[in-house]
C-alpha cells in the first residue's frame, strides 16, 4: 500500500511534467518524437508485464502491435467504420489471437514460449506482407483517418501528445495496481519458482495466459495509437527486429520496473534520432546491448547503476 501511494505521487509529478512539456514545447519535431516515446513506453510496459514480472518471454510482440495497427487501419479505412469502434475490435482480435497462441505454448517452459512467439511473429509479418488485397502488402497501407470526438479531432501533434501520454499514464496506474495485487504477487511467484507457485495453489498456466492476453491487448492499443498518428503503416514496422527492439527497451530499462519501461523506450526512441549513422549499425548495437546488459547488469540500467553506486559507497565506508 505504501508503495502504491509513492507510485501515485510519482505518477502525479510525471503527469505534471508531461502536461508542462506538452504545453510549452512548440517544435513539432520534438512533439512527434515524444509521441513515439509514449507509444514505445506503452509497448515496453506491455512486454514488461509479461517478461519482467511473470518471467515469460515473447520474441514476437511486434505482431500484436501490428495486429492492432492493421485491424484499425482495415476497419476504419477500407470499411469506413469509426475508429472508436475499430479500437475494441483491434484489442479484442489481439487478445483472441494471444489466447489461441498462448494456450499451447505457455504450458511449457521458457525456451518453447520464446521459440513459439518468435515463429508467431515471423508468420504474422509474412501475412501482413503477402495478403496484399487486405493489407496493401509490402508497400504498406495508406489513408488511415485521424481520431475525432465529435468535431474535435486529434489532428495536431500537441493534441495527440496529450492523448498518447494520457493513455500511458492511465496504464502506469493500472499496471502498478495489478502488480501490487494478488494477481501481481502470483505472477512474481511464477517468475521466482513455477513449481513452488503451483504448490501454494497458483494455477500457473492460467495466470500466464491471462497476463499474455493482457500484454497483447496493450501492445495492440499501442498499434492503434501508432496507426492513427502516422496515417500510414507497412510490415517493416512490425518485423522481428521490431520485436527485438521492444525486448531491448525492457531489458535496458529494467525488467520488473514500470518506470524502467519509460527509460528504455525513451533511450531506444532517441538514440536513432541522435546518431545519424545509427541505421547501419542498429542491429549490431541492439545485439551488443542485449548481451552486455544481460551479462553485466541483469537488473537493467536503472537498478544496475543504483547497485554499483551503493556498492561503491559501501566500500568507501569501510
Amino acid at each position: 500500500m505504501i508503495r502504491t501511494d509513492k507510485h501515485l505521487i510519482a505518477c502525479f509529478v510525471f503527469a505534471a511534467a508531461a502536461t508542462a512539456t506538452g504545453l510549452l514545447v512548440e517544435n513539432a519535431y520534438y512533439l512527434q518524437v515524444m509521441i513515439f516515446i509514449g507509444i514505445n513506453t506503452l509497448l515496453a510496459l506491455s512486454l514488461n508485464m509479461l517478461m519482467g514480472y511473470a518471467g515469460q518471454i515473447s520474441l514476437g510482440h511486434a505482431a500484436f502491435y501490428g495486429i492492432g495497427a492493421y485491424t484499425t487501419a482495415i476497419l476504419s479505412t477500407t470499411y469506413n467504420i469509426s475508429p472508436w469502434l475499430a479500437l475494441p475490435a483491434a484489442v479484442f482480435t489481439a487478445m483472441a489471437i494471444a489466447y489461441f497462441v498462448g494456450r499451447p505454448t505457455l504450458r511449457l517452459t521458457g525456451y518453447y514460449l520464446a521459440m513459439g512467439t518468435l515463429g508467431f511473429g515471423i508468420i504474422v509479418n509474412i501475412i501482413f506482407r503477402e495478403w496484399r488485397s487486405v493489407t496493401g502488402g509490402a508497400s504498406g497501407f495508406v489513408g488511415i483517418p485521424p481520431l475525432e470526438i465529435g468535431s474535435f479531432a486529434f489532428d495536431t501533434d500537441r493534441r495527440y501528445f496529450f492523448l498518447v501520454w494520457g493513455v500511458v499514464l492511465f496504464f502506469f496506474i493500472i499496471c502498478r495496481r495489478i502488480i501490487d495485487s494478488r494477481v501481481g504477487r502470483a505472477l512474481r511467484a511464477i517468475h521466482d519458482g513455477e513449481h513452488a507457485a503451483a504448490a501454494v495453489g497458483v494455477d500457473t498456466a492460467k495466470m500466464k495466459l491471462k497476463i499474455f492476453v493482457l500484454s497483447a491487448a496493450m501492445a495492440s492499443l499501442a498499434g492503434f495509437l501508432y496507426a492513427h498518428q502516422i496515417f500510414f503503416i507497412s510490415p517493416g514496422t512490425f518485423s522481428f527486429l521490431a520485436s527485438i527492439r521492444i525486448v531491448t527497451m525492457v531489458v535496458i530499462g529494467g525488467m520488473a520496473s514500470i518506470w524502467g519501461s519509460l527509460l528504455g523506450a525513451s533511450l531506444l526512441t532517441l538514440l536513432p534520432e541522435w546518431l545519424h549513422a545509427f541505421a547501419d549499425y542498429e542491429m549490431m548495437i541492439y545485439g551488443l546491448v542485449l548481451m552486455l546488459v544481460m551479462i553485466f547488469l541483469p537488473q537493467g540500467l536503472t537498478r544496475g547503476i543504483l547497485d554499483i553506486y551503493e556498492n561503491s559507497r559501501k566500500k568507501n565506508d569501510k
Binding site: 527485438i244 525486448v247 531489458v251 544481460m294
Partner: peptide, 15 residues
C-alpha cells in the same frame, strides 16, 4: 537470461 543473450547474439551477427 540465456534466451536474451543468444537472441542478442543473433541480432548482432545478422547486423
Amino acid at each position: 537470461v540465456l534466451i536474451i543473450i543468444t537472441v542478442g547474439a543473433s541480432i548482432f551477427l545478422r547486423g
